[in-house]
Amino acid sequence: MLEPLLPKGARAGRPPVWPRRRLIDGIRFRVRTGVPWRDVPVEYGPWGRIYDLFRRWQRNGTWHRILSRLRALAEAKGPVDPQARERLHPHRLSRNTPPIQGKCPEVSLLQHPLVT
């Protein structure tokens, strides 16, 4: 589902050492758990490479395009259940609680049920 939205590798040459899917899983692990980048398990790849991919896609708008596409898919499925937010985010105690400042939309994107 996300493959058409991801940037294509334009460079010819040596194949990547770490598969992109594994690096994306590392980004999702970091976002889901909230650990520092340096504490992402090595099984996802080197933390510097994972962080580099995250920042590169953040700067070039890839995360924004993916989020827009996922929102469009969700809206096409019909109205959203009003209690869905509470089910997806049980840590939110009140609807009146303001969102955490500085949280980028990429974080909510990676926790989206269509991404998992």
Rank of each mutant, 00 (worst) to 15 (best):
M1S: 15
E3V: 04
E3H: 03
P4K: 05
P4T: 06
P4H: 03
P4W: 01
L5N: 02
L6M: 09
L6F: 04
P7K: 02
K8C: 09
G9S: 15
A10T: 13
A10I: 10
R11S: 09
A12M: 14
P15A: 06
V17W: 10
V17I: 15
P19E: 03
P19T: 03
R22D: 15
L23T: 06
L23G: 02
G26Y: 00
G26R: 00
I27S: 04
R28M: 08
F29P: 01
V31R: 00
T33H: 11
T33W: 11
G34H: 02
V35K: 06
V35Q: 06
P36E: 04
P36Q: 04
D39T: 05
E43A: 10
E43G: 04
E43R: 14
Y44L: 05
I50H: 00
Y51C: 13
D52I: 03
L53M: 12
R55P: 05
R55G: 07
R56K: 15
R56E: 13
W57K: 08
R59E: 14
R59G: 12
N60A: 12
N60T: 09
G61N: 06
G61D: 07
G61I: 03
T62M: 07
H64C: 07
H64N: 09
R65Y: 02
I66C: 03
S68R: 14
L70N: 01
L70A: 05
R71C: 11
A72H: 08
A72P: 01
L73G: 07
L73C: 07
A74E: 13
A74R: 14
A74S: 12
E75I: 05
G78E: 02
P79D: 08
D81E: 11
P82E: 05
P82W: 09
Q83M: 13
Q83I: 13
E86G: 08
E86S: 14
R87P: 04
R87Y: 13
H89K: 06
P90H: 03
P90L: 05
H91V: 11
H91Y: 08
H91C: 09
S94D: 15
N96Y: 11
I100D: 08
K103Y: 09
K103A: 12
K103I: 15
C104I: 14
E106W: 12
V107P: 00
L109T: 12
L110V: 02
Q111M: 10
H112R: 01
P113Q: 11
L114I: 07
V115R: 05
T116M: 10
